[in-house]
Simulated scan of single mutants.
Amino acid sequence: MTEENDTLVTEIILVGLSYYPETQTAFFWAVLIVYIITLIGNSLIVMLIVVDRQLHTPMYFFLSNLSFVDICYSSSCAPQVLVRGFAKKATISLNSCLAQGYVSIFLGITECLLLAVMAYDRFVAICNPLQYSLIMSGKVCTQLAAFSWVSALLLTMIRESVQPKHFCRNVINHFMCELQAVLKLACSHTSFSQLVNLATALLALVAPFIFIVVTYVLIGQVVLHTCSAQGRNKALSTCSSHLAVVSIFYGTAMSMYVRPQSKSFSDKDKLISMFYVFITPVLNPLIYSLRNKDVQGALKRTIMRRVLH
């Protein structure tokens, strides 16, 4: 096929659940409810951390970054899924589809790196508490957050620079513009771009995940040897909750981006992508923040100030 014919693909058809029309209504409401909870929960976390001075600490600074990423991450996909949920032939322009895919990749990598930074913050707080304020100064926290955002942008730009530009097909078996699914439509051989994608996935997914696991193992060793039984149970419960969310996010993302790529996108792949796009962002505020007594106290103080004034 010639390059002239390759460029004829100007719009993408998203299959979604058109093969299963009986499930479209339930899927629409499920996505809508999860998206609303994600927006409310993460927006509440960001607002509380901004307005309550008692939450102006390194841990909550990173949590506010994570919540902001989750808002943007879900918003980059959910509206598109909802708008096209009932269409028999949902279409989107090729440029818009690619843009949405790269934005999602950027935000996903940012979340990966922020989760690793948050694990390091907890490691310093628990394993080196006397020097915590010195190590995790305001300047260092800003630098770590900036490192996460800038590194994610650079890795996304590297991926974009080597991706194929011409596409022969225009049908994606997905609800949204998952970049892995879009690139399967390419006309040319994609072995080099797949190699680059794998390298960036190792840097953005595997390396941070290993770092987080090692960090929590070291935290667990310190907790077991130094804390009381009550403190030990509390710390281990918190760590296990964090690791559960981390495992869902990294596990599903790695199963999508690190494994050998097939020629087509299956229904199983669509389900897997739902976890790191929708489930993790709605769980993060519940696991990391809203169960936290400091956040609950900040919420009560904020409500009281509104009532009194």
Rank of each mutant, 00 (worst) to 15 (best):
M1S: 11
M1I: 15
T7N: 14
L8S: 13
T10Y: 03
E11H: 09
I13E: 14
V15A: 06
V15P: 02
P21Y: 00
Q24G: 03
F27H: 09
A30S: 14
A30Q: 12
L32W: 11
I33W: 07
V34Y: 01
I36K: 02
L44Q: 03
L44V: 09
I45F: 06
V50W: 13
D52E: 10
Q54F: 11
Q54E: 15
L55G: 03
H56A: 14
H56I: 02
P58M: 02
F68H: 06
F68D: 04
S74I: 08
C77H: 12
V81S: 09
K89G: 05
T91K: 13
T91Q: 15
S93D: 09
L94W: 13
G108Q: 04
L113Y: 04
L114C: 07
M118P: 12
A119S: 11
Y120D: 00
C127Y: 02
C127N: 07
N128Q: 09
I135D: 00
M136T: 00
G138Q: 06
Q143E: 09
A145H: 01
A152F: 01
T156M: 04
M157C: 12
M157L: 14
F167N: 07
V171L: 10
I172F: 12
K184H: 13
N197Y: 06
N197L: 08
A201D: 09
V206I: 11
V206T: 14
F211D: 06
T215E: 07
Y216W: 11
Y216M: 05
I219R: 00
T226M: 10
T226E: 13
R232W: 09
A235L: 08
S237F: 15
T238I: 10
T238P: 00
H242Y: 15
A244Q: 02
A244N: 07
V245R: 02
S247Q: 03
I248R: 00
G251H: 00
T252V: 13
Y257T: 08
Y257P: 03
V258N: 08
R259T: 15
P260K: 10
K263Y: 14
K270N: 15
I272D: 00
I287G: 02
N292F: 04
V295R: 01
Q296D: 01
G297K: 11
G297F: 03
G297C: 12
M304V: 10
